[in-house]
Design a protein around this nucleic acid. Structure first.
Ligand SMILES: [Zn+2]
Ligand SMILES: [Zn+2]
Ligand SMILES: [Zn+2]
Ligand SMILES: [Zn+2]
Lengths: 146, 146
DNA sequence: TATATTTTGAGAATGTTTCTCATTCTCATC
DNA sequence: GATGAGAATGAGAAACATTCTCAAAATATA
């Protein structure tokens, strides 16, 4: 088997420069398991690259969004959280008491998208179902107190 | 018919002071038809009360939320928008091109809530389905260009 | 009306995200 | 491997939404 000089189409970055900062940030994002904020990402990256700038983190996240590599969501807080898009499409359930995030997905959502396309002629690009409440444990503890 | 001195149970404000600022803000919210930002509300209120403070607007919105009078939603932007809760429960569809907001509601959402309650024992307090895309008109214009 | 409690205005402070610009890095080409 | 044009970076300033502080004013209750 000969190793031919195949032009490496830099698939993931679609022609944008592959810098050490971007590699580092993607690596952290992949290993983080999702729902990481820009600041957390920055702190995490700083441990491996002393001089990385918060601006670079934000700029990279912006780029990753454009390249469809990461997904940006707001989970109740003012700030956004980020996670790799490789994981299956899902929605979020956040506990107001303990902050736990439950991910779930449901066929009902796909049906809803279809219905909206038909009824309003809307071409959807983003679906965010955000739900907040009290998880089983926290609801239980609250009722124990009363 | 005698006018008895009935203790006016300040229903809406549940014992909290009824100030001119709060009355003004509720009035604007009611007449605005929904999806108004804190800043817009502030500007609107300033026209009728020169000296009202932006902090008062934020504090009042906080209170109205607690009293369950208004609902706070994020429609894609960094800032929140507010609308009276009197209107039927609904969800939002926002056009990325023209900014148009379409309100809709669907029985599928109620079914989803039931399913989540059963599957995860989650006691839901807030449901925000936010969808983004291109409306019929904007999608059409875009394809005309191409 | 008098008094205790809330609320307000103004501006400072906070927290997140974006911008600016001089310097550095990347990558296609030689 | 060296070169150069263009892209990306670091550092801090700026922008933006939101919250906090505190003295002064308004409100509710008796
Ligand atoms: Zn919980
Ligand atoms: Zn997730
Ligand atoms: Zn549109
Ligand atoms: Zn609405």
């Amino acid at each position: 088997m000969t190793t031919r000089n195949i032009r490496k189409t830099n698939n993931e970055m679609k022609g944008r420069a592959v810098t050490s900062q971007r590699k580092l940030l993607l690596d952290i994002l992949r290993k983080s398991g999702g729902h990481i904020s820009a600041k957390e990402l920055y702190r995490s990256a700083s441990r491996r690259n002393e001089s990385i700038s918060l601006a670079t983190v934000y700029r990279s996240l912006q780029l990753f969004k454009e390249l469809d590599l990461v997904e940006e969501r707001r989970l109740g807080q003012v700030f956004c959280t980020y996670e790799m898009k490789e994981s299956a499409e899902h929605q979020h359930l956040v506990c107001r008491s303990c902050g736990k995030v439950i991910e779930f997905e449901s066929p009902l959502i796909r049906r809803l998208v279809e219905a909206l396309k038909h009824e309003h002629g809307f071409n959807l690009t983003k679906i965010e179902l955000y739900m907040e409440g009290y998880c089983k444990e926290c609801a239980k503890n609250a009722s124990d107190i009363v």
